[in-house]
């Protein structure tokens, strides 16, 4: 078990959180114009990298709010947590010093 930093509540135990999969997957802008193949990709396909991954988490037994995180899927280390309305940190930002998101 590890501590996960909720952007609103601070570090809490992993059991307080639930996982929401890949972040930054927008709903199709023109759903009516999507082909079956494009729908398949929207519904079933998500990235599955070994390494850095932008993903959604929910602090479901705490403040019950969603947030995003950059986490390494090989080491499980959280590199950044950020609010849903924050943009995804770039690789350059991630290479810099860790900052608080609050």
């Amino acid at each position: 078990m590890q501590l996960i930093e909720c952007p609103w509540c601070g570090p809490r135990e992993e059991t307080e959180f639930s996982y929401g999969g890949q972040a930054h997957v927008p709903y199709p802008e023109q759903p009516g114009e999507l082909s079956d193949e494009q729908w398949a990709h929207y519904v079933f396909y998500r990235d599955n990298p070994k390494g850095r991954f932008a993903e959604r988490w929910n602090h479901n037994t705490g403040c019950r709010r969603w947030f995003n995180a950059i986490r390494d899927t090989a080491t499980y280390r959280f590199e950044r947590v950020y609010r849903l309305d924050d943009p995804q940190p770039s690789a350059t930002e991630l290479a810099g010093p860790r900052r608080s998101t609050s």
Partner: peptide, 13 residues
């Protein structure tokens, strides 16, 4: 474990 992971280990809970 609920999250994606390649670490060949999981959480104790």
């Amino acid at each position: 474990d609920s999250y994606n992971g390649y670490g060949q280990r999981g959480a104790f809970h």
